[in-house]
Structures are given as C-alpha cells and as structure tokens.
C-alpha cells in the first residue's frame, strides 16, 4: 500500500526531504518504519524508547486516530499531529 503522510511544521528542522511523503506499508508501524528509513532523524521524535508512538503525538489515518497496528488502506491520508497536551515547557 502507498499512503500520503504529512508531518507537523515543527519537524521542519528534523527532515531532509520535506514534511510530505509518499510511503508504503500495510500498517501504521510499517509506514513509520518506511518513513524512518528515509528520514532517520524522525524516529526519536515520533516513537519513544519502547517503540510506541509518543504520548503527545497522534497519528490519524483517513481522519481516524490510529495505533501502530492500524491497517493503512491504499492511497490513505496519514497525518501526524502533536496533541493539545504537551505544549508546556520542560523543566529548567
């Protein structure tokens, strides 16, 4: 399957090939792994140390919130968004 994936603007400095990608994969996990092969710097930003989607990051497939095991239809529209939570600063 090939899907269109769009990343949030905040990740501009983390990519070499822009914020929109055509990526293949049967599931969100496979799509993200395909993305990470192309954009290795994104791995640390989208998944945590356990390999799960970060707590304040959301992935939507055709408008519905998805998990790593969610199937990705052909020509799906995938959006990676930062959640409403998580905008507060880190400790200083």
């Amino acid at each position: 399957m090939t899907a269109r994936l769009r990343l949030p603007r905040m990740l501009t400095h983390s990519v070499k090939n822009g914020l929109e990608h055509e990526v293949g994969g049967e599931t969100v996990r496979e799509v993200l792994n395909s993305l990470f092969e192309r954009e290795p710097g994104l791995r640390t930003h989208l998944v945590d140390e356990k390999g799960e989607i970060r707590p304040h990051v959301s992935v939507f497939v055709d408008g519905l919130q998805a998990r790593l095991g969610t199937s990705v239809p052909e020509r799906a529209d995938i959006r990676v968004l930062h959640a409403v939570s998580g905008g507060a600063g880190l400790n200083s």
Binding site: M10, H45, G86
Partner: peptide, 20 residues
C-alpha cells in the same frame, strides 16, 4: 527538546544552517 517530540541535537558550521 519538546514535550511532544523528545530531544534532538543539531550541528552547524556557521550558526545559520543546521542539520539534525
């Protein structure tokens, strides 16, 4: 760093163009 996206390190030769 970001509460959403974790941490990163960027490098630059001139403090103008950066590469993560």
């Amino acid at each position: 760093g970001s509460n959403w996206f974790g941490v990163a390190i960027h490098r630059s030769a001139d403090f103008e163009s950066w590469e993560q």
